[in-house]
Design a protein around this nucleic acid. Sequence first.
DNA 1: GTCCTGATCCTCT
DNA 2: GAGGATCAGGACG
Length: 197
Amino acid sequence: MEKEINFSDILPRSFYGRDTVLVARELIGHHLVHDSPEGLTAGRIVETEAYLQGDPACHASRGMTNRNRVMFGPPGYAYVYFIYGMYYCFNVVTAAAGVGEAVLIRALEPVAGIPLMQARRGREKLTELCSGPARLVLAMGITREHNGCDLTRGPLFICRGAGRPQPVVTTTRIGIREGAELPLRFYLQGSKYVSKR
DNA sequence: GTCCTGATCCTCT
DNA sequence: GAGGATCAGGACG
């Protein structure tokens, strides 16, 4: 289990400006880091979902609106949206500018700043800190202010995981009605930190 | 363990 | 005015 993070090895914009499914799969194993005023937190990405422009479950499927505007912008930016009256979800904008696609980050394995995550979440168990899209947003201190922020610069960024890529399982997405049968969810095989098996 | 429900409000129709 | 890329807690077994 590698816990090493090289904070200087931030993923470049070219990583994100590719096929969304490929980016969703390859994000598994990299590290999401937030260097916030309260302290630094980081987690290894263990679960993602791809949202494609032609897909009815995607916010961008019916064109650009105020909410989904950043999905149509250049890749490598954060798309944070409000859901169910109380939660936020964090996405990474992918593909070329003008294409409304993104990757939802669904779960992290806590790596750094664990006491701060526990305080933000009001829970102790590591498997409950970041195992779910709204949970990880809370644990990492991500807010709506991060909508549209550049993930290739601080304070919120993604850096390369150490070691070799690990086996990734492909399955169907969670919590959607239309497009539920599409194989667009990816998770790290065997991880205790995914939101569901 | 599984199932069900309430909380809570922004966004688009 | 309806519905949603969710979570936590309680009932039940």
